[in-house]
Design a protein around this nucleic acid. Sequence first.
DNA 1: TTTTAGAGATTGTATAGACAAGTAGCCTAG
DNA 2: CTAGGCTACTTGTCTATACAATCTCTAAAA
Lengths: 233, 233
Amino acid sequence: MNKYQIIHDELLKEINDGKYPNNEMLPSDFALMNRYHVARETSRKAVAMLVDEGYVMRIKGRGTFVINQNRYSFPISHVESYRELAARLKLDERTQLLSITDSEVPSVFEYGDNTPVPATAVVRIRYLDNEPVIIDHDYVLKDVVPEIKKLSQSVSLFELFEQQLGLVISYAKKTITVEPANATDRQLMRLAESIPIVVIRSETFLNDGRIISFTESRNRADRFKSVEFSRRH
Amino acid sequence: MNKYQIIHDELLKEINDGKYPNNEMLPSDFALMNRYHVARETSRKAVAMLVDEGYVMRIKGRGTFVINQNRYSFPISHVESYRELAARLKLDERTQLLSITDSEVPSVFEYGDNTPVPATAVVRIRYLDNEPVIIDHDYVLKDVVPEIKKLSQSVSLFELFEQQLGLVISYAKKTITVEPANATDRQLMRLAESIPIVVIRSETFLNDGRIISFTESRNRADRFKSVEFSRRH
DNA sequence: TTTTAGAGATTGTATAGACAAGTAGCCTAG
DNA sequence: CTAGGCTACTTGTCTATACAATCTCTAAAA
C-alpha cells in the first residue's frame, strides 16, 4: 500500500474514533512529516484525500479542521456497491437474487446504434430492516463477461468483477430521475398505492474505457434519502 | 491565477472545443512540461483537476484520455447556483422573486438547540422554458448577513455573498428526498394533481466554518433529472 | 512463424527544498 | 490601555529529481 494511503486511512480512523473532536485541528503538515517520516507532499496528499471526501477542511494560515459529519448518508457520487454501502452504514441488509437470464441492454440506456447488445440480466431485490426497498436490474455485457456462472448470495457483482475476473472498475455515470412505479415494482415491493420510484441508472466503466454493465436501481421514494457533500470551486 | 489553474482552464477549453476527439490522448506530462515550461508536478496538478471533474481518465503506461461527455447534466455534487447552472447549460431560464421576509430557520434543518435562529427568508420561483419547475426557499442567517437590502433580479444570492459582501463560500451538504407536493407547491407551480416533489435541502458553509444559509429547493419530480459522475476508490 | 527480450514512453509515488501568503499571539512603543 | 509590528506557525504553490510500474512496439531469437 502507498504511504499516503496508509496515512489517510489512519487519520480517517482517528477521525471516526473521535480523536479529533468537532472542529478540532488535525496535525499540521510538519507534524505529520515527523510522525510518519515522510516528505511534506506525501502527507499533504493524504490530507488532500480527506478534503476530497468531505471529512476535513483546510484554512490557509490556520490549519486543518474536522467537519462535523452526519454519518447516515447515501452518497451517490462515488461508485459503491449496495453491499459495501450497507456494510459501511451497519444496516440490517439482505439481498435476494431473483433471476439471471440472457437478455439485451434496454433501449433507455441509449447504448450503441439500435442493434441489440447481448447481456446477462441480473435482478435482485434489496431489503433494509426486512422491508423490500430497492430493486436492482443489472445488465452485464457479454462482450466483457461472457458468462455469469454462479453468483453467490454473499458476493456482490463488483466483487465478482474485480476479485474473480481481475477487472478494474474505474468510474460510472449515473442519472437520477423520479418515475411512477410499474407493475413489477408494485408487486415485488408489495406497494398498495402507486408510490413514486427514484430511478438511478448507471453505466459502469472499466479502466480501459470499456463499459462493463448498465444498472437500473429502483428505490421506493418514501424510503430514499441521499446525502451529498459538495465543494465550491 | 495559479499556473496549474491556467493550464487546467486551457486544457478544458480545448476539450470542449473538441480539440481532443473522443477517447483521444491528451498531451503527456512531459509534453505539458515543455509546452508550459513548468515542473511535472504542476502539470500533473492541472490534469488531476480534470480527472476529478470527470473530463479525462489516466491509465498508467498508456496516457490520458478524454471521456465521452454527455454535457446536459445537472450535477449536484458541487456547489453551484441556479443561475450559474442555467448559464452553463444555456437554458432559457427566468427567476421571479416572490418575497423577502424576516423569518427563522425551519426546524427540518435541525440547526441549533430548538432556540429560534433569526434569518431572512427569500422565496423565488424558477422557470425553465417558461414553465415553473423549481421553488427555492433560502434562509440567510442574520448573524452572518444582517440585512438583505436589495436583491436585484439579475444577481444571485451567491454573487451577493461573494462579490458584494466579500464572503467566501467553501462547501455545502445536501440531502435529497422525494416528498408529496404541498399546497404552496401546487399553487405556485400550477400543479393539478399531486405530483411528487424532489426536495434538495442544503446547508452552505463559509471558509471559516460558519453556516451562512439553509436552502430548500423544491423541484417538480417529472422535470427533475440529475446526472452524476462518480469515480471508484 | 511464434515467442521472448528489450527499449521507450507514460503515469504513479516519493523526496528535499524554496518562497509566498495568511493567521494568531506576543511584546513593545506610544 | 491600545495600536502596531514582529515572529512563529500553517497552508499554498512550484521546482528538480529519482525510481517504480505498466503498456506498446520493435527486433532479435528460437
